[in-house]
Design a protein around this nucleic acid. Structure first.
Lengths: 210, 210
DNA sequence: TTATTTATCCATCAAATGATTGAATCACAG
DNA sequence: CTGTGATTCAATCATTTGATGGATAAATAA
């Protein structure tokens, strides 16, 4: 038994997968209400009825995108956790920031979609959600800020959120910030990493010293 | 000569002003495409044609909201600058964070609208913009990070952006983060201030020491 | 009062948009 | 080849949504 989403993830050439990939990008750029099924279909190069044939309705497609992104992000967080295992906090932070920044710049849909969910409301009765709370607790534990994922105090959760948010903001805001600071994309990415480390590492390491 | 917006700002009881206030909130919550003129009209308790009578079209109203918010935010930044004038950097940061957090929690439309503009695209050819670049350069100078507003290097701009973004994110994400960390609104606001200071003050003060 | 401007609402339009139907096409097992 | 199911598309529908016109009422001027 495999859901439509699982099929699409296995065969990236399939029509299902092509639609899903475009939907991720467009939903991320324009949000749920700013995206029309026609925009997605046109980008894929198919008729809207074909889109409906594969994914049902707009909401179904949107929810599949959410699940898809949850899986990708969860997997990348596991990768990051492996890479930093056993290292001191400052290095854990630096490596995590580098990894997550590179990954999210390569997959900006993820940051886009998550920020839309944080900050905007949708006009339909959807109860599907991103796994951000679980991820956040996981990161807190992985960073050594909480004993276990059940037990992260609000202060710790907030600190982790601050780090994650600042990454997403720079990724998703590239189109706005890049011309604003007058640098090209490559330089911007380097600046993001540099700035994130400048901001976050002192906070956590200074407190560790105490 | 006074524009419709100026009239509305002078008399908050006027129909123009009531519509504008509701539009700020709803555009901030649902974004441009997620908001319908009917939603706004219904919230105000009037017919859509009355809304069009006062503000023209949806885009006109939206752009008036942007200008309105720019004015409010610009004025508050001037207030903040007065309050921190002459103090050492750590205090300037702490006071600014407290002031801006209180102000934006009282006016979440501002953070909402700005974040929508950062992270999302709109499907219409609008060239109106928020004054974020100017504000950012102003803050850089006011914080003593740049000699003058013309001369803020990219690194400095990025740092200021990081601070502003983290404030907006916690304001605008209240509905998401508050239940996530399982605290009530009052405690959440306190946590936001605490977290922002924890994150940002060490970064800037440590570097100052060098 | 009367006339004129301002403001509001009801009814309606035209375009956009999510969705469906049914015919045509394709893939491929038998 | 033939038939069967899967896939795609053109045409169309129903609803939503931005917008307008005209009637009505309220405020204001004369």
């Amino acid at each position: 038994m495999s859901t439509p989403l699982e099929k699409a993830r296995k065969d990236p050439e399939s029509m299902k997968a092509r639609i899903l990939a475009v939907a991720r990008r467009i939903f991320g750029e324009y949000g749920f209400h700013g995206t029309t099924t026609r925009m997605i279909a046109q980008e894929v190069g198919i008729d809207i009825s074909t889109l409906h044939y594969h994914w049902g309705g707009k909401k179904d497609l949107y929810e599949s995108v959410v699940v898809d992104i949850n899986k990708d992000l969860g997997q990348e967080l596991i990768e990051a956790e492996k890479a930093i295992h056993g290292l001191p906090l400052a290095e854990r932070l630096a490596i995590s920031i580098d990894m997550m920044t590179d990954y999210l710049f390569a997959n900006p849909d993820i940051s886009n979609m998550i920020l839309f969910r944080y900050f905007g409301k949708t006009r339909y009765e959807g109860n599907l959600d991103f796994s951000v709370p679980e991820f956040t607790a996981d990161i807190a534990r992985s960073m050594g800020l909480a004993r276990d994922k059940k037990n992260a105090p609000p202060e710790t959760m907030m600190k982790v959120l601050a780090v994650m948010n600042s990454i997403h903001a720079f990724i998703s805001g590239e189109n706005f910030f890049c011309p604003m600071v007058k640098v090209d994309r490559e330089r911007y990415i380097a600046l993001v990493k540099e700035t994130l480390k400048f901001i976050h590492i002192p906070a956590f390491t200074q407190n560790e010293a105490k």
